[in-house]
Each structure stands twice: as structure tokens, then as C-alpha cells.
Simulated assay, not measured.
Amino acid sequence: MQAKDAVGRYGERVATRYLSDRGYEVLDRNWRGTRGELDLVARRGGTLVVVEVKTRRGEAFGHPAEAVTRAKLARIRRLTGEWLHTHAVPRREVRIDVVAVVVPRSGAARVEHLEGVV
């Protein structure tokens, strides 16, 4: 399990760097709510972006984004509401994105950013 956790943490670092390089301001990482965790909360312009990061070593078991199910998205929506309430953020546009990271055996990680999945 530790190797899987290390891959996930690496993927979150890659996703954070990827988003920062594209003008996103990361506000929170690994925020724990009452029923789960939000990987990243960021802001770009007037939009608050909640980001689910999925990382895999390859695509033998499918693309990483395929692991984001309807149930997972419903949990992310609930947690987003909790994050907004906890942080007393003024009402603004909110979007949920998925950043899929594939870490091959050699070479750089591949990143795919899916915007507005909900």
C-alpha cells in the first residue's frame, strides 16, 4: 500500500505544478472534510476549481480518469459545499475538474486535464 500512496502523492505534486504553471492558484491540498478528502482546491480568475487527481503507473487497467465514478463525483460535490461553508468563500463560479496523471516506467509523467466534469 505504501508504493500506491507514494504514486498518488507524486501525482498530486505533478498536478499542482501543472495547474500552477497554467495560472491556477492552489488554495488547499488534501483538505479533509467530514466524509472524505478534496485533493486540490484552486482558483483561476473568478472560478473556484475543485480538482480530483487520479494517478496510475500505466493504462493496463484503464485511463486514470475512469476511476472517477458518479458516486465519487457526488461525494466531491458534497465536500465542495462543506469546503465553501468552512472557508466562508463568497459565492462564485465553482467547477470540478479531474487531472489524470500517468507515470510510465521511464520518462516524464503524462498529464490530462478534464475541465468541468460535472
Rank of each mutant, 00 (worst) to 15 (best):
A100C: 06
A71R: 13
V53K: 01
F61Y: 09
T80C: 08
I76R: 03
I96C: 07
R91K: 09
V50S: 02
P90Q: 02
K54Y: 01
P104G: 08
S106F: 07
R105Q: 10
P64M: 05
G8T: 04
D5M: 10
S20R: 12
K4M: 10
R92E: 14
K4N: 12
T16W: 02
D28K: 02
R91D: 13
V118P: 15
V7P: 00
L27E: 13
V111N: 05
H87E: 09
T16V: 04
R56W: 05
L40P: 05
A15T: 09
L40Q: 04
R13G: 09
R43M: 09
G45C: 11
T34E: 15
W83I: 01
L38A: 06
M1D: 12
V99Q: 06
L84F: 01
A67T: 12
R44N: 04
L84P: 03
G58N: 15
D28A: 15
L84M: 15
P64A: 01
R29T: 15
Y18A: 03
L27A: 01
R9L: 11
R92A: 14
E12H: 07
V14W: 05
H63F: 13
G33D: 14
L19C: 03
D5P: 00
T80W: 06
E37T: 11
R110G: 00
Q2L: 14
A6N: 09
I76E: 04
V118N: 08
G45D: 13
R75T: 11
R9T: 07
P64W: 10
G33A: 11
G58A: 09
L38N: 10
R105A: 14
E112D: 13
G11E: 14
A15C: 08
V98T: 13
R91P: 12
R78E: 15
V68Q: 05
R17Y: 08
A108K: 14
G33L: 05
P104S: 10
A6Q: 13
E25A: 13
E12W: 05
R77Y: 05
V14Y: 08
V53P: 01
D97H: 05
V111I: 14
R9A: 15
L114G: 03
S20L: 03
R56Y: 04
T16E: 15
L27I: 11
F61P: 00
Q2C: 04
D97K: 07
E37S: 07
L48P: 07
A65W: 05
T47C: 11
Y10R: 12
G46I: 00
R91Y: 01
R44K: 14
V26M: 02
A74T: 12
L79T: 10
L79W: 03
Y18E: 14
L114D: 03
L48K: 04
V68G: 06
V41N: 03
R110C: 03
Y10F: 15
T80S: 11
G62M: 07
